[in-house]
Design a protein around this nucleic acid. Structure first.
Lengths: 363, 363
DNA sequence: CTGTTAGCGCTTTCAA
DNA sequence: TTGAAAGCGCTAACAG
């Protein structure tokens, strides 16, 4: 013992960086009088060493405060034991919508099973591409991106397995979606059946801002709205039907409310593409003394955990958010672990939840 | 070009793993007719090379689909460009309380500034210690742990900078807390002033389950409750005052509601240590036809973003959740970047928000 | 059961 | 402006 610490001290006096040098596998090998291999075995496959040797090595390691360097280990094993979630906005924005927390919660179920950590990968100095190149992960789930994004190419280049969520991915790319068309259609139909004809559709911000240019999720949903409108002889461009965009958060909904109130004719109902937005609209309406659903019906999309707890409880399109994350993570882990995985495209069902934020027009 | 691909092909025929071998810095160096150093420079400090050389290298790299291996890079630079959040429960549990999402949101503000990704580090195969040893991060924020936890020791052993949240950390350990005592005291005082004397305190699950054994946050809060009770001549063990525990989530609150209803005398008010729990209790009460606040007053703790939107809006103790995460992350980054940082312990204020879920007894 | 010996893929002095 | 060479700290054939 005493000898050991003396040795350590002496060596450190000889070292260029006396105070800083970390203890490495070599130090342990030397002090325990074994090879690096033995030390490695002691930590990773103790069964391959006599238990005395293992014990001696572990003792020395503890005394010297040795910890295997996980980066060096990863360089060899090519595994990081982490999966990523790629998000095109910054972390704050992503989590400002509870949707994302619930999605991550679902992904977490798989992390838990598989012993993985979860890395949230936002743009780094403005560049999601750079962040993607730098991420120390074994694979990732991609949200909010088109399948032809440069980030997707980078992932392929890095040979990183990945699964997309809410994307029009080609067949060979694993992807988990929901039935956006049906969700949108049924919610619009619900309002129309309640007699509403002056309806504002509030979408989250798209790349172009033009409904005609929508792709992916947004396109499918608007196709659904079109289908429902068509049944009653209306279209997106009909008088009384409005399409706006706002940030996908409660704050975004509050902000968009003012714009809603300026529309002519003033909408009697709002279709928000996210519950977070709907919350904001309902909240702002109440602040302005406008009764929901008495003077304004509001429909959301997502069915967050809190959506049944708000006042009034929110009529919305339920989608299985956590399950979406979970299924994506399962597909991903199949790829990471090189298991077989047959169904590469998954479409989860949605369901219209009629609650108290909508009401028949003029009642 | 043709030659290049032929060469690649030929080499791959000679390789043990024909299809799999990744292209490395050596391949680029060889094909571009330069040294590894030059390739490294081309990617990291292009200014040190003639622009033609840089261009040629980058071209070759693109043609061969080369991406620097971030793990190898990290091994040299000793940086991962990620910070961690250590959570003692699994990811799903953590995010089942919106509190955590908001905390992460605050941390994300700093990640955004600093170009960092964020790793959520839950126990790995049941062991948080193992996960901590394996995490590829430059530092971390520790939640839900005591300062003498083995995980904290591991962090120190790994020389990883870390900041604790909600912990009774010693002076030399950076830490961000809130004024738990005052938050608890004021909320209890509020109920007492409304005339309530039969009050259940619903805590989130502690290690011991014994109020007397509470430490850290829980201890401070219960000291606050005691102080308020004492002012009216009561104590935690007085008849009518109950202490229970449940999971820290909406589901936990729903579950605990049944237990609340069996208490004798039945509480006229509940003090939940988390808004998520309070939501669950309110929801369950309403399902059972019990009016809140008419028949039962409920107070929360946290003031989640949705707490003002629920029915009834929740009386609760506001704490600056996102700011807590942000301040912790700022302290952490100071350490990671080896900047000076003077104040190592931060205590954030709280504020009682009286809303609609509480009411004078017997009105 | 244990050690030798190559790497893993990159960065970074130092010298040319 | 460029390159040689020495690591970074660990794993894993392979040999004994």
């Amino acid at each position: 013992m005493t000898q050991t610490s003396n040795e350590t001290q002496n060596r450190s006096l000889l070292t260029a960086t006396p105070a800083q040098r970390r203890v490495t596998i070599n130090d342990i090998a030397r002090h325990a009088g074994v090879s690096k291999t033995a030390v490695s075995f002691a930590f990773n496959t103790p069964g391959r060493l006599s238990s005395e040797t293992t014990q001696r090595i572990l003792d020395v390691a503890r005394q010297l405060g040795y910890t295997p360097n996980p980066i060096a280990r990863s360089l060899n094993t090519r595994r990081t034991n982490a999966i990523g979630v790629i998000v095109p906005q910054d972390i704050t924005d992503a989590f400002s919508n509870p949707f994302f927390g619930q999605l991550v919660s679902g992904i977490g179920r798989v992390c838990n099973m598989e012993g993985m950590s979860l890395m949230v990968v936002p743009p780094m100095r403005g560049s999601l591409l750079e962040a993607t190149y730098a991420a120390l992960i074994d694979g990732c789930i991609v949200t909010g991106l088109e399948p032809d994004d440069e980030v997707v190419r980078a992932l392929r280049q890095r040979h990183l397995p990945f699964v997309m969520i809410d994307a029009d991915a080609p067949d060979h790319v694993a992807c988990v979606n929901i039935d956006d068309h049906e969700g949108a259609r049924s919610s619009m139909q619900h309002l129309l059946r309640l007699g509403h004809r002056d309806i504002a559709i509030v979408s989250f911000e798209s790349f172009s801002g033009q409904v005609e240019q929508y792709t992916g999720t947004l396109k499918h949903r608007f196709d659904g709205y079109r289908a429902a409108l068509k049944e009653v002889g209306l279209a997106l461009h009909s008088r009384g039907i409005f399409c706006l965009e706002c940030k996908c958060s409660v704050a975004g909904g509050i902000e968009v409310f003012n714009r809603l109130m300026q529309l002519v004719p003033r909408p009697t109902a709002v279709l928000a593409l996210s519950d977070a937005i709907a919350f904001g609209i309902v909240h702002a309406a109440q602040q302005h003394g406008i009764n929901v659903p008495g003077q304004l019906s509001v429909v959301g999309f997502d069915d967050l955990e809190t959506s049944k707890l708000t006042r009034p409880s929110l009529t919305t399109v339920h989608q299985p958010i956590a399950e979406k994350g979970q299924r994506a993570a399962e597909l991903l882990m199949d790829a990471v672990r090189q298991r077989f995985s047959l169904p590469r495209h998954i479409v989860l069902p949605v369901e219209l939840m009629v609650r108290k934020s909508t009401q028949r027009l003029g009642v």
